[in-house]
């Protein structure tokens, strides 16, 4: 793909040098919604760099513009100012190099689990044979623990199972960046734990740069290399960034027993309560 060549140059049109470790670069990002009473500034002067193979979680109060930021990275929401670049290439619209796991599973209910995953695989691996494509889709469905449900209609699956398909669909297209918009927000806490484990297990293997929005402080710490805290809107920006230094692969137990865990937790809660 053309992006591969631009990594070597590591340059953008502006002539700024990017260390090749940067996967996703947001600079001076701005989002304005025009309203009858004048412009409403959601995000302003937002700067954030996310490295390759990094898992970043974003935490902040509801309505602060987290989802707006994520959908701008996905290319689903136009940028009002500033710049978003993936490997130095500015984002111009949506594309399969940025996989999205939505808050609601957003599966096509008339398709089977396999067909839902195949929809993306067919598009991205159009050069592969049908059998190969099917194998890719099946591989990821197995990874999320759905080996028995390939041919179940999406509408017959539980919410948790549907979100598993959503995860498989996103990983199966081998994106450069994975964007997760509170993917477990609608699930009960038991299912949420299960899905976090599944997500992190696949992620440990694939190491796809991930940006995930969450409301859950524990989830943010457990999954992330860095937790990004956003200030409340309007004109939200990055408030603080917390490095999580647990080694990977992690288990929930080891994280909970770690001495730093409560320090991290306190840090995040202190930020959110101000």
């Amino acid at each position: 793909m053309s992006t591969e060549t631009t990594i070597d140059k590591s340059m953008t049109e502006n002539g700024i040098f990017y260390p090749s470790k940067v996967m996703l670069d947001l600079s001076k990002l701005k989002k304005v919604y025009p309203t009858p009473k004048g412009d409403y500034v959601v995000l302003e002067d937002l700067d954030l760099q996310i490295m390759k193979e990094e898992f970043v979680t974003i935490i902040g109060h509801s309505g602060c513009g987290k989802t707006t930021m994520l959908s701008m990275i996905a290319g689903l929401n136009p940028i009002s100012g500033g710049n978003i670049a993936v490997l130095g290439n500015p984002v111009k619209g949506p594309g399969p190099d940025r996989g999205v796991i939505f808050q609601s599973p957003s599966l096509m209910p008339w398709m089977t689990a396999l067909q839902n995953v195949m929809l993306g695989v067919n598009k991205v691996f159009s050069h592969a044979t049908k059998l190969q494509r099917k194998d890719i889709a099946k591989y990821y469905l197995q990874k999320v623990g759905l080996e028995g449900a390939f041919d179940k209609k999406a509408s017959e699956l539980s919410q948790g199972m549907q979100q598993r398909v959503g995860i498989a669909r996103a990983f199966a297209i081998k994106p450069k960046v994975l964007l997760l918009d509170e993917p477990f927000g609608m699930l009960d806490s038991l299912t949420r734990g299960e899905l976090q484990d599944i997500l992190i297990e696949i992620w440990n293997k694939e190491k796809i740069t991930a940006v995930m929005i969450t409301h859950d402080v524990d989830e943010a710490i457990f999954l992330a290399d860095r937790v990004v805290m956003m200030t409340s809107g309007p004109s939200a920006k990055i408030g603080d960034i917390l490095n999580i230094d647990f080694e990977r692969p992690r288990t929930r137990k080891s994280v909970l027993e770690h001495n730093d865990y409560y320090t991290y937790r306190k840090h995040l809660i202190d930020f959110l309560e101000h």
């Binding site: 996905a74 290319g75 689903l76 619209g93 949506p94 594309g95 399969p96 940025r98 996989g99 999205v100 939505f102 609601s104 957003s106 096509m108 929809l119 993306g120 598009k123 991205v124 297209i173």
Partner: peptide, 14 residues
Amino acid sequence: VDKDYINVAKVLKL
């Protein structure tokens, strides 16, 4: 059509 489905189609660039 549900906006989510359209977004999926957009992300996959169908």
